[in-house]
Design a protein around this nucleic acid. Structure first.
Lengths: 339, 339
DNA sequence: GTGAAAGCGCTAACAG
DNA sequence: CTGTTAGCGCTTTCAC
């Protein structure tokens, strides 16, 4: 059924070594006639190399693992992962690497070891783990290269992370809002276990501080980045004695549901209340009003993560470094000028 | 560094065979003491089996491939794939199978063989290939089990497909529109190379026929399921001498951009024109107006495809059969009653 | 109950 | 230039 190298070698009348070498492209080592016989035999037999065997002997699976925790629900509920996947794949495909999806239902150390380090991957990309995730202790469990996306690894300098510059993004957004005349800021954050949520909140507060604007407690609420959170955290915020002029929401998904809540309550966005998001997911372009937000170069993040890992795999050197990519302020309809 | 079975065996003072057998769970074959020694050694050495080696010897990689063509662009542009992936993963994870993503930039027979059959998968799930895709000739190239999603395989009875019942879905939608008083139907189809697009269009026409409503040519346009197509195919439709009362769009993505086009042109949906979609992607719930559509049980489709394949792999029998899942009519805001 | 031996399909020294 | 030899780490008859 499935043809092996040995059969090709036999058909070509050469040794397995010769067949292997020729088929791996080092063609100049052999006589043209030999090369030709091998190539022809392989062609005729429709030979397909067994990558498993190759991986075993070379100790290299040519496969990366994309590890996502599912505390936030399914992939469908984490729309920002998809463009990252595209970026990874675009880099991997021409280099003949594969991507396996590792989705952790619960991320105990146990499951992590089982599912992540048992899988035959050469390296991993970990997306947005929570602060207490065992995934952050990756290197304590495995020598495999890893790049963290959407967070900074705890480890002093051993880790590698690529992320959007959350601080710069939040700053540019708030400064822009200030320039539009906003002076009363509400904020809906994400779980403080989420690295990006902490940074965004901190940065928001810093900018307010710079402007000498006090952060009013009843306008500060905390959700968990999920669609549902926009509603329940939103309810809390809207119950304040008075509304701010703008609510800065820490991610797009919550911003979208928060806008829906506003509509349901008869609060017109942006006329009565401005709302902004963060991430730049596609959805924000289709809501009404469209969402003013800070967009992440997600495709590029995936690309860079993959690039670093392949380099690390090839060189055998540890992958480390931190790269913060520039965010882009997307000015759309959900935030308005205050006279 | 990485511990092997041999080291475990040595540490436990048993043979590799014994260690292998014990660790594979057939514990009753050995003396309790032996079992215990092996287990303890494995634990202490933090032994992780090399799945590559296991796969090689068992001729089973415990991996499924999700194959998508990229004629429609990146994954980010095919939002319906994500819930399918979730469905597959939910089935695979507890069964210790992995999922690798195979995204074909161009699907010549060449790349298909290279990328699909070269990858170490035990079976494949092919999502919505075009009519002329070599992927449909899967069995001519490989004995591996495959399930087609979102299309029927050409092969007489050899193939396996799971899909939403496009005909029933379209019928229920059009019948509902008729019941709302609509008599003038426009239609924006997908590429006729796409199986689902053909079915949906045919079914649409059939229902009109049943009602004795003529299909007016200037109200029939064809896009290609992409976001952009909603605009260009939409332009064409809106240039008709007169507008229908409703435009039935063949997928949600085009319906969304078509609604945006209408808004840009000052045509109020649904007051001046009703619009409906098909697929039930999340986006449709967040547009304004929200999109009336026919939703597919995508998670279930993924689940069933994975289930069939694992059964096929285990039994060694060819996977075949066709399963059409019931669609659900989602009545939202974009289509209205005609007095 | 347990172990020796063979081999999955391939690559990589090392001879010749 | 080409072939022989030795494994990669594991499972699996088949003896003992």
């Amino acid at each position: 059924m499935k043809k092996t190298l040995r059969e090709v070698a036999k058909a070509a009348g050469v040794s397995v070594t010769t067949a292997s070498t020729v088929l791996s492209g080092r063609v100049d080592l052999y006589r043209a006639a030999t090369v030709h016989r091998v190539l022809k035999a392989a062609e005729e037999l429709e030979y397909r190399p067994n990558l498993l065997a190759k991986a075993l002997v070379q100790q290299r699976a040519r496969t990366l693992g994309l590890v996502v925790e599912r505390h936030q629900g399914l992939l469908s509920r984490n729309p920002y992962i998809i463009p990252i996947m595209d970026g990874i794949l675009d880099y991997l495909i021409p280099r003949e690497y594969s991507l396996v999806l590792i989705s952790l239902q619960e991320s105990s150390e146990e499951t992590m070891s089982q599912r992540v380090f048992n899988s035959s991957i050469d390296a991993g990309i970990v997306v947005a783990p929570l602060e207490d995730s065992p995934l952050l202790q990756w290197h304590a469990h495995s020598p495999l290269p890893v790049v963290f996306v959407g967070c900074m690894s705890q480890e002093t300098d051993a880790g590698a992370c690529v992320d959007v510059d959350n601080e710069a993004g939040m700053r540019s957004l708030v400064e822009w809002l200030y320039a539009q005349g906003h002076r009363e800021f509400g904020f809906m954050g994400g779980s403080q276990k989420q690295w990006s949520a902490r940074l965004r909140k901190q940065s928001f507060l810093n900018v307010l501080l710079d402007y000498g604007i006090p952060a009013r407690q009843e306008w500060m609420v905390e959700g968990d980045y999920t669609y549902d959170a926009g509603f329940w955290a939103g309810e809390q915020l809207l119950s304040a004695s008075r509304l701010p002029s703008v609510v800065v929401v820490s991610n797009d998904l919550m911003a979208v549901s928060f806008m829906e809540l506003c509509r349901a309550k008869g609060i017109v966005v942006p006329d009565q209340l401005s709302v902004t998001g963060f991430d730049g997911i596609d959805l924000g372009q289709h809501t009404s009003p469209t969402l003013t937000t800070v967009s992440q170069p997600l495709h590029e993040i995936g690309h860079i993560a993959a690039e670093w890992l392949l380099k690390g795999i090839d060189s055998g050197e540890r992958v480390h470094g931190r790269k913060l990519l520039a965010p882009r302020l997307e000015i759309r309809e959900s935030a308005r000028v205050i006279q």
